[in-house]
Each structure stands twice: as structure tokens, then as C-alpha cells.
Amino acid sequence: MAEFYCQLLIWETINSFGGDFVGASSVSFQSTIGGMENIASQSTYNAFKKAVLAKVDQFYTTPSISGQTVTLKVGESKTLTDTTGALANYKDAPILNTTGISVTKTGNKVTLTAKGTPNASGVVRFSYNIDRAYDDQGPGYYYQHPVSQDVTTCGFNGGDPAIMTLNVKVELDGSMKIVKTSERWQGFRCTVPRDG
């Protein structure tokens, strides 16, 4: 039944087909499973369409934290929360992390922790969580533009079209104070290496 409803939705979207049953409240057709009849109804189609279009809207919703620049000090953690709810649909592991920091994502929250020897700057990038079995088939994508020509990838998948990036800066320089507390160490000299 989902294939039938999906085809109706495609026709309605691309060809401006009405998406209705032309005056009928339901359509009956033979099923390939056990020869039983399936009944497609306008109300069931409308519910299917609403659910699919909600997922499409979610796909095109950019997480509220996308593009932010986060500044951390070594040893510091910051948690960012997406207020749109879209980040929950992205993969938990980043597809790119050039920062050298620890990154943890759960649902709509990303925690960044600068520990060890992180880079002074970099990016953390997440991709939309598309089922791997589907993505491995090299599905085509159809892009529609209101003014320019519509384009399709015809199965030559160039990668996930939905990504989210965080820019990260890490303050690597700190400060230190050495205090002499005893006369016993008169004339003592101390050298502190820059990277130690």
C-alpha cells in the first residue's frame, strides 16, 4: 500500500496531480500477497502524505546550532542543544572532526570537550542519518528550483545533501604563576617550556 501512496505523492508533487481519488472515497486493487484485496482510501492517503511531508520538512530543517563557532579552553566542556529538533535525525558520530577534541552527540545535544592536545581550530561535521542500505544503492536525488532548471542525480549519489557543521576554536595558551615561599632557594632559576 505504501508504494501506491508514494506514487500518488510523487505524481502530486512533481506533476501537480490532484492527489485525490477522482470522486471516489476509496480504490480497491489486487494484492500480490495471497490474492487479497487492498483498499486505498483518501483518508489513509492523506495521513500517509502528512507523515511523509513532516519527515521531508524535518530533513530540510537546519539544526539551530549549525554554523556556530564554539570557543573552548583546554580541559573545558560545552554542551550545545538544538532547539529545532532536527539534530536528532543526524548520525551520532561526526563524519569529520579536524579539531582533535572529544565529540559526543545524543539526540539534540552535542558535547565538545577539549582534552589532550587539540588543534587551535577546526570543524566538526555531522551528516543526516540516512539508512546505509538505501544510501549504498546510489539513489537519485531530485532538486527542484523555482526559477532555474530542475536537476536529478539519476542514481549517481554525490553524498549526503544534509550536513551540519560546528566551527571550534581552542585556547591553547594558559597562564602560570611561580611563587618562591622560602629563603632557602635563594638564586634558584626555573625554566618552563612553552609546550609543557
Rank of each mutant, 00 (worst) to 15 (best):
V70T: 03
A88S: 09
F21W: 09
N167D: 05
F4C: 06
W185L: 15
S41N: 03
V103L: 04
S31G: 08
N89W: 01
W185T: 15
D131T: 13
R194F: 06
A2G: 15
F126T: 00
Q30V: 12
T69L: 10
T81S: 13
G75E: 10
V192Q: 08
Q42D: 06
N167Y: 02
D195Y: 15
K55S: 05
D160V: 14
V52H: 01
V192L: 11
Q42M: 10
A40S: 04
S66I: 04
E183D: 15
I95V: 08
G107T: 13
D20S: 14
G100Y: 02
V151C: 02
V22N: 15
S26A: 12
A120P: 02
L96F: 05
G34A: 11
V74P: 01
K177N: 04
G158Y: 04
G19N: 03
F17I: 13
A114T: 02
Y143H: 07
L9R: 11
A51K: 15
A88C: 04
D136F: 07
G174D: 11
I130T: 04
I33A: 10
K78N: 05
T32H: 14
R189Q: 14
F126C: 01
V70A: 08
I33D: 09
G100K: 04
N89D: 03
F17C: 08
T69N: 03
T32F: 10
L96C: 08
S26W: 08
N89L: 05
N38P: 01
G158F: 07
T79D: 08
L80P: 00
V103R: 03
T181E: 12
F4S: 01
F29N: 08
L112M: 09
V103I: 02
D195V: 14
G107I: 07
V124D: 00
I33S: 12
A86H: 00
S175R: 14
R189I: 04
P193E: 04
K115L: 13
A162Y: 03
I178N: 07
N38T: 11
N108L: 07
D195F: 13
A120L: 09
L80I: 06
